[in-house]
Design a protein around this nucleic acid. Structure first.
Length: 220
DNA sequence: AAGCCAATCAACCGCATGCAG
DNA sequence: GCTGCATGCGGTTGATTGGCT
């Protein structure tokens, strides 16, 4: 397959966005939405490629972006989810409302990774370092056969019995990507309400904290 | 005040995946 | 089933900033 050239070398701007470009992008998306990123810059009159516009919007301009420092709770969630999911930043970001995958990735590499490495260096064997240990303690073992079932245990995953039945008969659980989809569905509340977000936060927070092993102690 | 260096983070690149034709 | 386009994702880069000498 021949890849479409990114940011066709002809005359498209690269590098930092100006305030004016930001304003054009915001105004356009507010007015027309972003159904087609590739066509958007042309329609909006921006000399950028669609990819660049999408990135700028999702990582910086979106109105629901939460700027500023990560709270201790957020740090702990990131650490534990990283243990569970690895470098799947978008999956981690979907559990942290207002945070982007890019932001979390940067935060991981600049703060948490170092701290954890340092901690590992001086590791105490008595501490729980594997999230599966924590989950084992607090979630029935039959839920832990794979990550999909962890989601099934999640309080906001199924809204009612109908959902459960539908899910049981669904072939959607066959592939890893579908599992990921389901995990995202469980907590990605972009179109949901803050109560669900809070439930998500409370769920993970409780799992982690009820382990009796304060991560902040581990990594500080 | 100037230069150097490390940390930070916005942005880019290229691969993977989904989907329509 | 195959092809090609659009988008998502994770790794990486490079400009900027702040601290130190």
């Amino acid at each position: 397959m021949v890849r479409a050239p990114c940011c066709e070398k002809m005359g498209l701007k690269k590098g930092p966005w100006t305030q004016e470009e930001d304003q054009i992008l915001i105004t356009f998306i507010q007015k027309y939405g972003h159904e087609n990123w590739r066509a958007l810059p042309k329609q909006a009159g921006l000399l950028r490629c669609g990819k660049s516009c999408r990135l700028r919007w999702t990582n910086y301009l979106r109105p629901d972006i939460k700027r500023g420092n990560f709270s201790e709770e957020e740090e702990q969630i990131i650490i534990k989810l990283h243990q569970l999911l690895g470098n799947r930043w978008s999956a981690i970001a979907s559990r942290l409302p207002g945070r982007t995958d890019n932001e979390i990735k940067n935060f991981w590499h600049t703060h948490l990774k170092k701290r954890l490495e340092l901690k590992q260096h001086n590791d105490l064997p008595s501490t729980i370092t594997n999230v599966s240990q924590i989950l084992d303690q607090h979630i029935p073992s039959n839920y832990l056969q794979d990550s999909q079932n962890i989601v099934a245990y999640h309080p906001t995953y199924y809204h009612d019995q109908e959902d459960i039945q539908e899910s049981n008969s669904s072939s959607h659980h066959d592939t890893q990507s579908n599992k990921e989809e389901n995990m995202q569905y469980s907590t990605n509340n972009e179109h949901g309400d803050m109560t669900s977000f809070n439930n998500d936060m409370v769920f993970w927070y409780n799992v982690f904290m009820s382990s009796g092993n304060n991560v902040s102690d581990e990594i500080s």
